[in-house]
Amino acid sequence: MLEILGKASSINVRKVLWTCAELNLAFEREDWGSGFRSTQTPEFLSLNPNGLVPVVRDGDVVLWESNTIIRYLAARYDGAHLYPADPLLRARVDQWIDWQAADLNRSWSYAFLGLVRQSAAHQVASEIALSIDNWTRHMRILDEQLRATGAFVAGKQFSLADIPIALSVNRWFGTPFEHPHFPAVSGYFERLRERPGFGVHCGNGLP
């Protein structure tokens, strides 16, 4: 039985949970992280030296980093419909997964922490404004891509890339500031409501 270590409210844990729903994959989950068992214990650090969730245990396999985990699960458990074996098609999925982690996430971090988490360390108005501007620029890139595909981020079919992207889009809609209208992004988010796991792990009221 696959084991997932991490609280269900974590955006990165939710990537893994949604992927399991798409793969119809059974698992057991343990609450770790803020408000639950500490990830700074020797027990947890022996699994992930970064002290972050999620961690998965799959038999003798232990993995951390959410995007690595979802790639592994799709490749291991008959997820070619999400993560194609063809090198070019897989690369098109990978580039959007990597863009989400390296570019999109970094753009919204300060604004989200300041406006939603109310972090005392993220209350400089000019920095929040800069983060919103950068976030908006990246969302415009996403809107243009979705207008080009007319469907999902890597093409006409839902793919593994849509899981991390959708969770970031959910944060976009859930962060309180004046949002420009991106019609392709809005249409995309509505299409995602039909996916297994979306309502439980993304469109569930959690930012």
Rank of each mutant, 00 (worst) to 15 (best):
M1P: 08
L5H: 07
L5F: 12
G6F: 00
R14G: 07
K15G: 03
W18R: 04
T19I: 07
T19L: 01
T19P: 00
C20V: 06
C20W: 00
A21E: 11
L23Q: 03
N24V: 12
L25T: 05
D31L: 05
W32H: 06
S34K: 15
G35M: 03
F36N: 15
F36V: 07
R37M: 10
Q40C: 11
Q40M: 13
Q40H: 15
P42N: 07
E43F: 03
F44D: 05
F44G: 00
F44P: 00
F44W: 06
L45Y: 03
S46F: 11
P49G: 08
P49H: 06
V55L: 00
V55M: 01
R57M: 01
R57K: 14
D58V: 04
G59S: 06
G59F: 09
V61A: 10
V62H: 12
L63V: 03
E65V: 10
S66T: 09
N67D: 14
I69W: 06
A74M: 08
A75L: 08
Y77C: 09
G79H: 05
H81W: 15
H81V: 13
L82F: 02
Y83N: 11
P84G: 06
A85E: 13
D86L: 06
P87T: 00
L89C: 14
R90Q: 08
R92V: 08
D94F: 08
Q95C: 09
Q95M: 14
W96S: 08
I97G: 03
A101R: 06
A102G: 13
D103W: 15
D103T: 15
L104P: 01
W108E: 15
L113Y: 11
L113P: 12
L113W: 11
G114D: 00
V116R: 02
V116P: 03
R117C: 11
S119H: 02
H122T: 04
Q123W: 07
A125V: 09
A125W: 09
S126E: 14
E127N: 15
I128W: 02
I128C: 07
A129V: 10
L130Y: 14
S131W: 01
I132D: 06
I132Y: 05
H138L: 11
M139C: 14
M139G: 10
I141P: 12
I141Y: 12
I141D: 09
Q145T: 05
L146H: 00
L146D: 05
L146T: 01
T149M: 09
G150S: 11
F152G: 08
V153S: 04
F158R: 09
S159P: 03
A161V: 07
A161G: 00
D162S: 05
D162C: 00
I163E: 02
P164W: 00
I165L: 12
A166L: 12
A166K: 07
R171C: 03
F173T: 11
G174M: 14
F177C: 05
H179E: 12
P180N: 04
P180C: 06
F182R: 04
P183T: 08
P183W: 10
V185G: 09
S186W: 11
F189M: 15
E190V: 13
E190Q: 12
R191V: 00
L192V: 09
R193L: 13
E194W: 15
R195Y: 04
P196H: 01
F198D: 03
F198K: 04
V200D: 15
H201P: 04
H201R: 09
H201E: 07
G203S: 01
N204L: 04
N204A: 02
L206T: 15
